[in-house]
Nucleic acid binder design. Structure first.
Lengths: 341, 341
DNA sequence: CAGAACTACGAAACCGTTTTCGTGTTGATA
DNA sequence: TATCAACACGAAAACGGTTTCGTAGTTCTG
C-alpha cells in the first residue's frame, strides 16, 4: 500500500527543510535552480499531491460548495444540479449535496453540518415544510456568519441574498393566453396543495390572463392535488363535473395524470381539452400526445446560481461596503407540442 | 457579522488554556465541575461549533464520501444516489458528488481531485468511455493508497474492491421466459451500441432463455440504438422488416421509443407485440400502455453500497490481514404492467 | 511531618500546509 | 579590510482542533 507522501517526507528524504520543499514546488525565486529541480523530480517520482484539507485549513477556503435541495429523484432539480456541478467544476470547486426531503428539520441539520467549515457557500431551494412554517432562522444564521447563499426557484423574500428564479407568473400568463387565443374559455388550474411560492406565482399568472380577457375566475376550476398518491377517480370527477376545455398544470406529473383521466373519459386532446404543464422532462416528451410544457431551463439556472455564488465567494468582502444582492430571472419558454393546438 | 468562534477565543475570554476548553467541552473527568459549567455555558451562548476542517486534519478522517456517476439527470442513478445519501447521512457522513458525463478524462480528474484528502472513500459507477477503454489505472491508484472503493452497477472485474450489482442476466432471462410462456416466439432485443457490461449481461440472459426454449438466436432481431438522438424511422423499419411479437429493451427510453413506433404502425400492445423494459421510472408508469419493467431497486443498491463503504472506512484496516472484498447482488424484480399479458 | 496520591490544569506536539522573517555564506564594493 | 547586498535556505508561527504528558497545589496516609 503506497501511502500518500507529504512535504515532511520529501524534506526528510532530501535533507532540506519543509519550507524549502514547499517553495521549491511553487517554483519560488528564493530557491536555487538545483534544489528546485531535485525537489520537483522527487515529488513527481512519488506522485506528491498537496493535502486538500491542510490547504483548506490554512486558507480558510475549502473550494467546496454546499447544495441543499428538497429532492433528488426529480427532473427539475437534477437539471439545476447539473448546471451547478458543471460550472463549479470548471472553476475548481466540488459540490457537496444534501437532500432535505421536503423536511424542515433535515434542512436545518444539513445546513448546520456544512456550515462549520465544510463549504464556502450554499446554493439551495427551500423545502416544502420550510415554506409552510415560514421559519428561516437557519438561513439567517448562515448569512450573518458571512457565508454566501444563493436561493433558486423556491425562494423567500424574508432573506436577503442572491436569488435565481424563473418568470413563473409571466410564462403562466402566456400559456393561458395562448389557450384563450385558440378559443378555450373554461380553463382549469391544477396545482399543489402545499404552499409553494412557485405555485402561487403560476396561479397569479393564470388569474391575470383570465382577468385581462374578461373571463371571471372560478374557484371550482382549480384542482389541488397532493404531492404523492394521486387519486385518479377524484380527477375524473373533476373533469366530469366541470365542462373544462383547457388545463394549466403546475408540473408535468399532474398533467400526465389529468391527460390520462381525460383520455379514459373518451375526450380528445387537444381538440376537446388542451393541456399545458411545467417541467420539460421525459414524460412531456414521450407521452402520447406529447405535452406542451414550460421549459424552465434548469441547467442554465444552476449555472447562474453557481456563478453568482462563486463570484461572492471570490470577491474579498470589503467590510465597509454594503453588501448588494441580485435576483436573476431565467426566462422560461413555452415548448409547444401536441397537447395544444 | 457574527464570525465563528474558536477554542482560542473562548480560552482567552475565560482566561484558561485551550486544552482546558477542549476538554471541558468534551466533559472530560480531568476538568472541575465549575470550570466545565463555565466553559459550556460560554460555548453555548456564543454558539460554538468545532471547525470540521481542523478536526478532519487532526483525525485524518473527513466524514465525506465521494460519489462519481456518469450522469445525474437519470432516474436510475438518482435513485441510487438517494439511497447513498440517506444511509450516509444517517451515519454522519456527507456526500460529495461528481459527474463524469460518461467521459474517461472527467472521471480521472474528479477522482484525483477528491483523492487528496477530501474524502474517506469512493462509491462509483463507471463511465461509458472508461468501460470502452478498459483503462482502470485511476481506480487502481486509489485502492493502492488504501482508499476504500465500492463500485455499483457498471463495474469491472479488473479491480478488486467491493461491488454492488443486480442480477441482470437472471432477470432478463425471466423476462424473456415470461414472454415465451405467453406464446411469443419472435422476440427482439433492443440494446445500446456502447459497450456496457450491464447490456452484455442482459443480452446473455436473453440468449440463454431463447436457447433453453429451443428458439434459435437471430442476429437480425437485435436492434442497437445510440444513447442520444434516436431515429424513429429506423426503429419503424426494424419492426416492419422483422415480424416481431415481443421485445426486451435494456432501458425504459428505448422501450417507449419502440412502443411509440409500434403503435404508429397500427399494431397493438401487448396483443401484437409485448414489451419489457429496464428501469422503473416515471415513463414506465405513466406511458399508455404502462410498461412492464425490471425494477432495479436503486435506492436499496445505494444504501448497500454506502453501508459497505462506511464499514470499510470504519474498520481499522488490520495491516497484517488480507483485505477481503464482497460482491453484493441486488435482486431485481419484474413489475408486470399493461405492456405484457 | 515526610511522602504518596489525587486534582485540575497548562504546555506542547501533532495533523499538512503556507508564509514571514531571520540568518549564514558569498562575492562585490569602497 | 570592513561593509553590504544578494542569495539560498531554515525556523517558526499560523490555521483550529485533540491528546499526551508534566506539574503545581492540595489532601491523604503512616
Amino acid at each position: 500500500m503506497k501511502k500518500k507522501i507529504t512535504l515532511k517526507h520529501i524534506a526528510r528524504e532530501l535533507e532540506v527543510s519543509i519550507s524549502t520543499v514547499s517553495k521549491a514546488l511553487k517554483n519560488s525565486e528564493e530557491i536555487s535552480r538545483d534544489t528546485k529541480e531535485k525537489v520537483q523530480a522527487f515529488a513527481k517520482l512519488y506522485n506528491y499531491r498537496p493535502n486538500n484539507i491542510a490547504i483548506s485549513l490554512k486558507n480558510k477556503r475549502t473550494r467546496n460548495i454546499g447544495v441543499i435541495i428538497p429532492d433528488i429523484v426529480h427532473h427539475f432539480f437534477t437539471t439545476v444540479f447539473r448546471g451547478i456541478e458543471k460550472f463549479a467544476n470548471s472553476r475548481g470547486y466540488n459540490v457537496i449535496i444534501c437532500v432535505s426531503d421536503e423536511s424542515f428539520d433535515k434542512e436545518v441539520i444539513n445546513m448546520e453540518m456544512l456550515a462549520n467549515g465544510s463549504i464556502d457557500g450554499f446554493i439551495m431551494s427551500l423545502s416544502a415544510e420550510t415554506q409552510q412554517k415560514n421559519d428561516f432562522n437557519h438561513l439567517k444564521e448562515v448569512t450573518e456568519q458571512g457565508i454566501p447563499l444563493v436561493l433558486f426557484d423556491r425562494v423567500t423574500d424574508e432573506i436577503e441574498c442572491d436569488k435565481v428564479i424563473i418568470n413563473d407568473k409571466e410564462v403562466a400568463y402566456a400559456a393561458v393566453q395562448k389557450m384563450i387565443d385558440s378559443g378555450k374559455r373554461k380553463i382549469a388550474l391544477v396545482t399543489t396543495d402545499s404552499y409553494f411560492n412557485v405555485s402561487k406565482k403560476r396561479a397569479e399568472g393564470y388569474k391575470k390572463a383570465l382577468a385581462d380577457n374578461g373571463i371571471p375566475f372560478n374557484e371550482m376550476l382549480v384542482l389541488t392535488l397532493p404531492y404523492q398518491e394521486i387519486d385518479n377517480s377524484y380527477i375524473e370527477r373533476f373533469f366530469v363535473e366541470n365542462d373544462i376545455d383547457a388545463v394549466l398544470c403546475v408540473n408535468e406529473v399532474f398533467a400526465i395524470h389529468c391527460m390520462g383521466a381525460v383520455q379514459s373519459l373518451g375526450m380528445h386532446i387537444p381538440d376537446d381539452v388542451s393541456f399545458v404543464g411545467f417541467t420539460d422532462g421525459l414524460l412531456s416528451r414521450y407521452f402520447v400526445p406529447s405535452l406542451t410544457t414550460v421549459a424552465q431551463h434548469g441547467e442554465q439556472m444552476g449555472e447562474t446560481a453557481a456563478q453568482m455564488l462563486i463570484e461572492k465567494i471570490e470577491t474579498e468582502i470589503e467590510e465597509h461596503e454594503e453588501e448588494t444582492y441580485r435576483t436573476e430571472i431565467i426566462e422560461a419558454t413555452l415548448l409547444e407540442r401536441e397537447s395544444t393546438k
